[in-house]
Each structure stands twice: as structure tokens, then as C-alpha cells.
Design a protein around this nucleic acid. Structure first.
Lengths: 243, 243
DNA sequence: GCAAAAGTGTTTGTTTTACACCCATGG
DNA sequence: CCATGGGTGTAAAACAAACACTTTTGC
């Protein structure tokens, strides 16, 4: 047991005093927008034009407005940059290091979202906005590399437990595309037969009885995600790491 | 593809303008402090003295100070209420609904922590501070029930994947205590033989070659957590739900 | 007919589950 | 000697892993 002093303790949940004294902080959201081009996991970044981060890449973010919900702010940022709505998005972590932003105390709530990369039409005016292969990103502005790393980790945790990967694929996809996606996100290689067996046996995907065309080899069958299916707990572990 | 307008978009990560206009928000931390009394999972709550939440229970929280890191604020709240330091703590989620707090816009970062309930000496002056069985809590002040629920879910996710439960137990514990803990946190029942086999085979616990005393039955062997051991991915699933 | 990728089953090893009796202690 | 909970093993089922050949298409 440890002892401690006993003067009364202020508590935001019991006393209303002094809140104004602390109104010295800004809250922002930062969006890690993931896309998949068929081979590698990508993230949408913008070139920072702040002096000290000149030529560094940063996440898309903005201050949360006084009358705006956090999730709404994140969706707004996503919409403004990609034109997309109704996209898979998840809050991940909040970063509040004292000097993380040169403008003062800015506490940022990080989100990641999964978009179909082909549905994103980059704005002409956003000339500093580009997709980057996640695994090639070495440094970023602010603490954004740390935010990215944590969001990648969260995505990896999610995708092995929950069918979120479909948000990165077109409506119709082949098993090879699906496997490429899992391999890109997780940085591992799977046995093709076992991978296909697993997904087919889980009933997560539905055969469309269509095939690819314009390929110069045997065309693959196309599938769609079965929204009604349940994810079955499984372990894609003990696989060959390629990282 | 979707089209969207093309006026320039403000971005906290590229432009420094207008940040002051948004300094209209307070940031707080809320701590979900879990303890285990040998049978049920408990959480430390304080009675709110705010008029509209009179007689409702609330989490322990406070405004983050302008020069204070988020984690530091959470540890401060924990220290002020329990006297404990160096406790397992994890940030979980940030809640920012517009009207979640009557004092104005208060965005709160929720943490949960795991403490040894017997190490907590409640302050005499904190007369409204008590341990509550998590499963008996029906409603709380503010959005705290939602925060609690999400923290419980997070703890459940963690405890089956990572050896965090030991933070809730005394240094020396029996396998029955360990099993009670897992059953209380997860709301399930395990087969005793399988549970013991699993933990012993994982090498997570170390036999102290000591036994309980003062029990009126065969005394159980005592174990300690082996910090060096690796958690082996496992599934405690398909168990009998008792919720 | 060749190149390129699609598609497909079986065997083996490991993990999980289900299940019941004897043991040590205090009173 | 009784009550209480502690401690233990085995068999069957489910799952995961390893592995190679045939098929279809475009050129």
C-alpha cells in the first residue's frame, strides 16, 4: 500500500470550476487513408508546406470544429480530400505530446480508413496529394510516422480477426487479389491452397460465376464479399514472414 | 468515382491559420480503474456531485493541463485517487460528443488500468469513492457507461491475447484464482483441467513451491507470473458463456 | 505448343475439447 | 470421517500445415 496526501482533488466529473482556465488546447483529427493497388498497401499523404516540415509528407488532418463530432471531423477531412462518403473508418489512438505541433498544443485523434483506391479522384488543386507505398515510408512530418505505424498495426490486428479487407478491394475480385491484399497488409506469404480453402470454407465470399477478362493466362473466377457471413475465429499465423 | 468541389482546403498539417479560433474545447482524461477481489471484476467510481448527475456514479477524470502529456494526466488521476504508481494502463478511445459534458465541449480520452485491489487505500476525504462490480452497473453519469463498456471490451480483447491479467492478481496466486479472474473478465466458464494445462504448458507461470494456508481444504500451490515468458496465441473460445 | 497463373485434395501433426476420479487439509 | 476444493490424463475431433500436378487462356 502507498500513502498519499489528502487535500481535495479537482475532478472534471464532479466540479465545474476552472474549465475555462484550461481552454488552451486545440483538438484535431488525422486520417490515415489506406488504399490497395493490387500489390501493395498505400496511404494517401500530402506534402507539408510548413517551413520546418518542408518536403516532408503528412497525414490529412484538420482542427475539429467547436460544433463538430470527432467522427464527423474525420469524415469531413476524408470527403474533402477524396470525395468519398460511407467509407470504413475506425478511431485508433489520440496523440498529445506537448510539442508535437509547432502551432501550440494540438491534441490529435487518429483514424484510419479503408477506401477503394480506384474510387479516389484526387483534386487538381491538391497537387501535393499522393499515394505512397506504406512500406517505403521512412519519415514524415510531425509525429505522423508514429501515427501511421500504429494505424498499420491496428489494421493488421483487425484484418485477421474481422472481414474489413473487402473495403480495399473492388466489388468483384479474384482469390488471388484477396490473397495479395492479405499478404500486403500483413507482410507475410500464405500457401495458396490453404488460403483459398479457408476463405471458401468460411462462407465469407460468394462465387459470382464470372471470370476475369483481358488477362493473358487462365482467367480467375470472381467473387464478392458476403455481408451476411460470420467471421470465424482463425489463425493465419505461423506463416512465412516476408518483412 | 465521386466529384467534389475544388476550393482550397484548410489543413492543420499544412496551414497554421485560424488555430486560435478553435481554442474552444477542453480535453480531459477518464480512468477506468479495474480491480479483482477474487471473484468479480470491479471498477473504482466516484459519486458525481453535479446537479444533473446527483447520485449517479462517474469515472475518475480530470482536465488535461496545458503542459501535461495525456498519459501523464491519466497517471496523475490514478495517483491522486489510489496512491498507486507504475500501474498497467492503456489508452482506449476518445469521446467527443457535443453535449457529453454540461460544462461545454469537453473531449475526453479514456484509459483503463489494472490494479491490485488490495493495494488501493481509498482516501478518507474521497467519501464518494467506491469499488463496484462491473456487471452490476446499469447506469452512470455523462457517457460513462458507454466508456466503461468499451473499456471492458478492450480488456477482454487484451486478456485473451496478452498476459495482462496478472496485474489484477497478487504476486502469488493459485491456479483457481487465475481461472476465476479469466472467468470474471470474460464472462465464461472454463474446464479446470484444460485451463490449467494451457497455462502451465505456456510457461507463463512459475511454480513457487509454496501453498496457500488458512484454507479449510487441501491448499493450492502458489505460482507467480513469469515475465520472461512469451504469450502463445491461443483460443479460449467455444467456452460456455455465463453472461 | 508455350508461358503464365488458376484451380484442386490428401496426409500429417498439433491443438482443442470433453470428461471422472483420487488427494490433502481442516474441522 | 466428512466436507471442500486441489490435482491429474486420455481419447476423439477439429484445425492447421505441408506439399505437386493438371487446367485454361492468350499469344
Amino acid at each position: 500500500m502507498q500513502s498519499h496526501t489528502s487535500f481535495p482533488i479537482k475532478n472534471i466529473n464532479t466540479h465545474l470550476t476552472e474549465i475555462k482556465d484550461y481552454f488552451k488546447v486545440a483538438v484535431s483529427v488525422d486520417c490515415v487513408i489506406f488504399g490497395f493497388d493490387g500489390n501493395v498497401l498505400k496511404v494517401l499523404l500530402i506534402q507539408s508546406d510548413l517551413a520546418q516540415y518542408k518536403n516532408k509528407w503528412s497525414l490529412l488532418g484538420d482542427i475539429v470544429r467547436p460544433d463538430e463530432e470527432l467522427d464527423a471531423a474525420a469524415y469531413r477531412v476524408l470527403r474533402e480530400r477524396t470525395g468519398l462518403e460511407n467509407v470504413y473508418m475506425e478511431q485508433v489512438h489520440t496523440f498529445g505530446a506537448l510539442n508535437r505541433h509547432p502551432a501550440g498544443r494540438v491534441i490529435t485523434v487518429a483514424y484510419y480508413s479503408l477506401v477503394n483506391i480506384h474510387h479516389v479522384q484526387l483534386r487538381v488543386s491538391d497537387f501535393g496529394l499522393h499515394w505512397h507505398a506504406v512500406k517505403d515510408i521512412k519519415q514524415m512530418a510531425f509525429d505522423h510516422k508514429q501515427i501511421l505505424d500504429i494505424c498499420v498495426k491496428r489494421l493488421q490486428d483487425r484484418i485477421i480477426e474481422h472481414p474489413v479487407g473487402f473495403n480495399l478491394l473492388p466489388k468483384k475480385f479474384s482469390l488471388r487479389e484477396l490473397q495479395n491484399l492479405y499478404e500486403a497488409v500483413l507482410g507475410v506469404k500464405f500457401d495458396r491452397r490453404n488460403f483459398r480453402k479457408k476463405f471458401l470454407s468460411m462462407g465469407l465470399i460468394e462465387d459470382l460465376h464470372e471470370v476475369e477478362n483481358d488477362v493473358r493466362h487462365r482467367p480467375a473466377k470472381l467473387y464478392k464479399f458476403n455481408e451476411k457471413a460470420m467471421w470465424k475465429n482463425t489463425r493465419f499465423l505461423n506463416v512465412n514472414s516476408i518483412t
